[in-house]
Amino acid sequence: MSTAFDILWVEKYRPRSLDEIVNQEEIVNRLKTFVKNKNMPHLLFAGPAGTGKTTAAHALAHDLYGEYYRQYMLELNASDERGIGVIREKVKEFARSRTPPDIPFKIILLDEADNMTADAQQALRRLMELYSVSTRFILIANYPSKIIDPIQSRCAFFRFQPLKKDDVVARLKYIADNEGVEYDPEALETIYEISEGDMRKAINVLQAAAALGKVTVETVFKVVGMAKPKEVRQMIKTALNGDFTGARALLRKLMIEYGLSGEDIVKQIHREIFSNEIDIPEDLRILIADYIGEIHFRLVEGSDDDIQLSALLAWMSLVGRKLGVSG
């Protein structure tokens, strides 16, 4: 059957119910008992990106409330919300809303909870206590150590392991076959290696590579390269050549055409500085990283993107000119 529209494969092939989740067996089994008992404690899902934490939370809610589960679940993402005050208001509002017919609680899903400051987490803890009668929190974090102890002790802890190579490759194979995509088997292994056990990233790379035609090791690398603006590397090289004005023209392009923020760009420069593509003495990488850190700090303090990055490029041009390196 074919429909007129398509959606991204990460969405299309996401397991909807706990039964569809093939890996993380032990976790799935524990979650299924919650569904059976129609009750659960607060949960803390921790583990690397793309291991199914958010998917498991949604699947759990799906199995608890049925197909229209999203009306009984408040989805928050700590990195998108503006402070604990906003979160508090949303939780308050949600706690008042309609309760599901045969489950005595609603779910508040707080993704990327480890992005919250310790103070905000303290406030969150009070929220969890205040609304514990009518709601359950599912907190999701990459680094559980960043979650304060009083919250950890109130949650049942679930550690998600990085996905195994076989699981990822099998899933990619399933999707590729289902979509009628041609592929070299070793290309799928390359995708696994690049994505480091991150299923979401793996599927996205597969999809982008498939758009180009047959999925080969070559197209996989091509796609990964394309997803990073080539101007970043070019800008670094131009600056290290001592051409400040040229480097800054590229900076403007990155900001305007790609809409990247100062922090995005600083992070990408940092990543590039340690790549083999930039051919500079090893100790210079450290020196540059140190100054990038200083600039990053000034950005975090709220100063102007354009000025800070110009300063970084001016410094790199000076260093490049003095040491005669050309990137």
Binding site: V10, E75, D111
Partner: peptide
């Protein structure tokens, strides 16, 4: 973000 279940960033 809400379709793919990830943050906006």
């Amino acid at each position: 973000a809400s379709r793919l279940l990830v943050s906006k960033s």
